[in-house]
Amino acid sequence: MHILSVVLQIILGLGFLMFGFMKFGSKQMVEGFNHYGYSSWFRVFTGIVEVVSAILVIAGIWYEALAAWGSVIILITMIGAIMTHIKINDNVKQMGMPIMLFILGLVVFLINYDALI
């Protein structure tokens, strides 16, 4: 199971680093957050949260408790993303990425949960 967790942590970590940094000024993200009805400060805050969660998940390769905490932040963030898509009446296809990231984050959490105990 450790190899599965490491692979998922790398995928999640790199993905959240990319999406987190994009939130600091990507035209696509600026337009997206405007479309969702969120302000610029919330876009930047979300980017910071995503970068922090990515760092925790990647560091969790060596310290499993960090992977568990990082994945909790990812789960909360993805619940917010899914709720945003529901709020603006997006279809399930448009919710695909947040749902997939939620599932991957949940698997990483479940694999590393024992490190919290």
Results as ranks from 00 to 15, higher is better:
residue 1 M to F: 04
residue 3 I to T: 14
residue 3 I to V: 14
residue 3 I to R: 04
residue 3 I to S: 14
residue 5 S to K: 10
residue 5 S to M: 13
residue 7 V to A: 10
residue 9 Q to I: 15
residue 10 I to P: 10
residue 10 I to L: 15
residue 11 I to A: 07
residue 12 L to Q: 03
residue 13 G to W: 01
residue 13 G to F: 01
residue 17 L to I: 11
residue 18 M to P: 00
residue 18 M to G: 11
residue 19 F to Y: 11
residue 20 G to M: 03
residue 22 M to K: 06
residue 23 K to W: 07
residue 25 G to N: 01
residue 25 G to S: 02
residue 30 V to R: 05
residue 32 G to Y: 09
residue 32 G to W: 05
residue 33 F to Y: 14
residue 35 H to F: 10
residue 38 Y to W: 07
residue 38 Y to G: 02
residue 39 S to A: 12
residue 40 S to F: 01
residue 40 S to P: 06
residue 41 W to V: 15
residue 41 W to G: 12
residue 42 F to K: 02
residue 44 V to W: 00
residue 48 I to P: 04
residue 48 I to G: 07
residue 48 I to R: 00
residue 48 I to D: 05
residue 49 V to T: 09
residue 49 V to K: 00
residue 50 E to F: 02
residue 50 E to A: 02
residue 51 V to W: 00
residue 54 A to Y: 02
residue 56 L to P: 07
residue 57 V to N: 10
residue 58 I to W: 02
residue 58 I to Y: 05
residue 58 I to Q: 07
residue 58 I to V: 11
residue 58 I to C: 08
residue 59 A to I: 02
residue 61 I to V: 04
residue 62 W to F: 11
residue 63 Y to S: 13
residue 64 E to D: 15
residue 64 E to L: 08
residue 65 A to G: 13
residue 66 L to T: 10
residue 67 A to R: 03
residue 68 A to H: 09
residue 70 G to N: 10
residue 71 S to I: 02
residue 73 I to W: 09
residue 74 I to Y: 09
residue 75 L to F: 09
residue 75 L to V: 07
residue 76 I to D: 02
residue 77 T to K: 06
residue 77 T to F: 13
residue 77 T to Q: 14
residue 79 I to R: 00
residue 81 A to D: 02
residue 82 I to L: 12
residue 83 M to V: 14
residue 84 T to A: 13
residue 85 H to W: 04
residue 86 I to C: 09
residue 86 I to N: 10
residue 89 N to Y: 06
residue 91 N to S: 14
residue 95 M to H: 00
residue 95 M to G: 07
residue 97 M to F: 08
residue 98 P to A: 04
residue 100 M to I: 13
residue 101 L to E: 08
residue 101 L to G: 03
residue 103 I to K: 00
residue 103 I to C: 09
residue 104 L to P: 03
residue 105 G to W: 00
residue 106 L to M: 13
residue 107 V to P: 06
residue 107 V to L: 11
residue 109 F to W: 07
residue 110 L to D: 11
residue 110 L to V: 13
residue 111 I to H: 03
residue 111 I to E: 06
residue 114 D to S: 15
residue 115 A to E: 11
residue 116 L to C: 12
